[in-house]
Amino acid sequence: MNDFAFLLTLTLKSSMAVLLAAQGEVLAERAGVINLGQEGLMLMGALTGFYVGFVTGSPVLAFAAAGAVGTLLSCLHGFFAIRLGANQLLSGIALTILGTGLSNYLGRGLIGKIGLRVQETPVPFLQDIPFVGPVLFKQNALVYVGIGVALVLWFLLTRTRLGLMVRACGENPAAADAMGTPVGRTRLLALSAGGFLSGMAGAYLSLVFTPGWKEGISGGQGWIAVAIVIFAGWRPMGALFGALFFGFLSALQFFFQATGAHFVPLYVLRILPYILTILTLSLAAALGRRGNAPAGLGKPYFRERA
């Protein structure tokens, strides 16, 4: 039972970065904008969060700065994809290349330095509940934030007028425009908010999960986040469970290392999440299914002039 609790604890810790990035991607894509720059956003967020934490010692400033960088880079993507109507796939891939190269260049001097490490924040009394307490209530604050973001985003998209506007921009931007919704501004707002979450996701990696900075610290989790959105049918709660599943697969390798069990070779466990991602995307492409993808996803919109 203790081993199972330990595995569940690792699952939550391993899933938070990809969860935050996936929620940001859900928000952007429900508004009609594909953002394949998640990997670059996470890397720049990780570098910024580590550097600001290293200089200031403040986790709040570190995460805020990481989110701000993610927002700025997303606005750059939005300028080309929304304002100029550029191909969203190419613009997003360019953003990943930019973020990867820039973080590698700027972060060279930070490799090996010991910076801020954000500790767990146990919840008084609740942490003492047998089994449930150590798993759910002795986690880092970002774990609670990540789950809260999924719940808030679900409520926003399904129960509020703002969520209806966002979904309308992704489904039928012409109809949304006719009803008075500023399509470009709404899409940019959703994309920017998603970028903020992706920046925070990167900072989680460098401040909480594996404190420190190294090149490629995201390890492809930005691409995993994009795949999870498709797997989840563009639903926030589906993305939550998809991220937890990814976290469970990732946690298995740490669990087996810690317990000394070797039922499955560790190298298989390390690549298993990525293999499943490739299979999921390949299956979706082979079947030609878009699932619950917004009808206007990836399509630029410009108001027709009389």
Rank of each mutant, 00 (worst) to 15 (best):
G199C: 09
C169P: 07
L191S: 08
T210W: 02
F245S: 11
S250Y: 06
S218N: 00
G32T: 06
V60K: 06
V166D: 02
L205G: 02
A295Q: 15
V166E: 02
V118L: 06
L249G: 10
L164T: 09
T280V: 15
P122C: 11
A243F: 04
Y105K: 08
L89P: 00
L164F: 12
A203H: 04
K113G: 07
V123Q: 05
R290N: 14
F254A: 12
V135C: 07
L151E: 00
L61R: 07
V33A: 00
T181K: 12
Q253F: 02
I34Q: 02
I129R: 01
L240P: 04
F241C: 07
M237L: 15
Q221I: 10
T160I: 11
P294R: 05
M179D: 07
N104A: 15
F302Q: 14
L47V: 05
L244N: 00
L272R: 05
M44T: 01
L164M: 13
R117A: 15
A178D: 09
L110E: 11
I147S: 05
G184Y: 14
G199H: 10
L297F: 12
S250I: 02
Q253S: 13
S14D: 11
V52W: 09
T48M: 09
A284V: 14
G53R: 13
A175D: 01
L72E: 08
A175L: 03
F131V: 15
T210L: 14
G163M: 13
L197F: 13
Y144P: 03
G298M: 10
V55H: 13
L27G: 07
L106G: 07
A17R: 08
I111Y: 08
S91M: 13
V26S: 06
T11N: 00
